[in-house]
Amino acid sequence: MYSIILSTASRYLLLLLLIFSVFLLLRGHNEPGGGFVGGLVAAAAYALYFIANGIEAAKTVLRFDPLRIIAAGLITAIASTLPSLVAGERFMTAFWIDTGIPFIGKVGTPLLFDLGIYFLVLGITLSIIFSLAEEDRS
């Protein structure tokens, strides 16, 4: 069922929800939030867009194959462990850089790991939703 209200709203909501998901991702280390929740919210944003505008439109907006997003997320998460291997520290030891910039503060490998989780959750959720949607259509 096509609804012009939902369709119009979803265009703005998509952007807002994505911004909110990034906010959740960055908030994650010391406060509630993080890659998992952020990824779910981002997936919900695309799911809403798909409900309003159909599967093809949602795929166009997403641009990437969800499987590629899964792979990219895993690669990012694995990459976050590389500094510990290169530096000869114990595996997955966190490294932090204090940027000194207000609001950004310390940036480190756990953020990179969280970013990987973000993409992984986004990719997995969307590939489930999209395959269910295609099943329904055929």
Binding site: L67, A71, I78
Partner: peptide, 16 residues
């Protein structure tokens, strides 16, 4: 860690 990490990396490369 390597016996755990290596299959993961291989699998990710294949998915990519």
């Amino acid at each position: 860690m390597l016996p755990i990490l290596m299959p993961l990396c291989t699998a990710v490369a294949m998915i990519f």
